[in-house]
Design a protein around this nucleic acid. Structure first.
Ligand code: FES
Ligand code: FES
Lengths: 148, 148
DNA sequence: ATAATCTTGACAATTTTACTCGGGTATGCT
DNA sequence: AGCATACCCGAGTAAAATTGTCAAGATTAT
């Protein structure tokens, strides 16, 4: 039940965009260096995020990436789901491509996997990038340092 | 965020023991056939469950496995955790072997992973094998058939 | 023009998963 | 005692997923 680096890096990159981004785009290089992610790898991930409509890209010199929406309108659920697919403990309870098991209608464990999936969904869909920024501000509020 | 077959088969096997087991032990072969799991593979898994103190074994002819405790005293959390390790979305928030990331004290995503982990823990620790049996009874209550 | 940057697709190393296999050990039954 | 039925243990292995790398092209500010 570990999230792969795709999902983890993706959230980190999106958080970086939410924290340091604004009107002017952030280059991939900047994000990759600050979050310590391999640049060519992040390239792949952010391409997925772009296709999912979570970031906008600006090509050419001084280009880069911008959040497609405001931080309070982007949930970590949408980020993780776009990079990892449905976060289902078993394929048969996936929202996107529910591969049916045989004997599915009589399967008790299926009920269990569904409960777990729903619980995860509830958490990740209820947390937005803005919530993370708030956590962040609270975390380094006293000394007013600018971490990461 | 998919559970591996270890966790899934483990829960299935334990549920089988809870449903069909009793005073006399169930042989590995019986469980493996009923749940459609490779017998030598299940052998590995149940060895882990035995070491975790979730099942007792009876060696020799007419031997097999028994639940170590009553179904209402065994949570699916304990089963999954013994087979898969801590169900942490990132290593740094694992309960068992929390491999610290660098910059951990300033990491915002860590708060997120922790929230996810806690939510999963809450679900799987609140569901026992007895709960699954109840779900099962309810599921095939009308026609009184004995599935699986 | 040119440098910076995104875009795309293919490729490769490493790790994990999901098993298999072979032989050993304990126990009930006849 | 001897045999069949089980559990017990450790090694090995093929396939899949993960985690990247790399090269060449397209776009745009300056
Ligand atoms: S595990 Fe998929 S229906 Fe039972
Ligand atoms: S991801 Fe582990 S501390 Fe940030």
């Amino acid at each position: 039940m570990r999230l792969s680096t795709k999902g983890r890096y993706g959230v980190k990159a999106m958080f970086d965009l939410a924290l340091h981004g604004g009107e002017t785009p952030l280059s991939l290089k900047t994000i990759a260096e600050r979050q310590e992610i391999s640049e060519p790898y992040l390239e792949q991930l952010i391409a997925t995020l772009r296709k999912a409509g979570l970031v906008k890209s600006v090509r050419g010199a001084y280009g880069g990436y911008l959040l497609a929406r405001h931080p309070e309108q982007i949930t970590v659920g949408s980020i993780i789901r776009s990079l990892e697919g449905s976060i289902a403990p078993a394929e048969c309870v996936s929202e996107m491509d529910p591969i049916e098991c045989e004997r599915a209608e009589n399967c008790v464990t299926r009920i269990l996997w569904e409960k777990i999936r729903i619980s995860i969904d509830n958490v990740i869909d209820s947390i937005t990038l803005q919530d993370m920024i708030n956590d962040y501000d609270e975390m380094c509020g006293q000394d007013n340092m600018y971490y990461i």
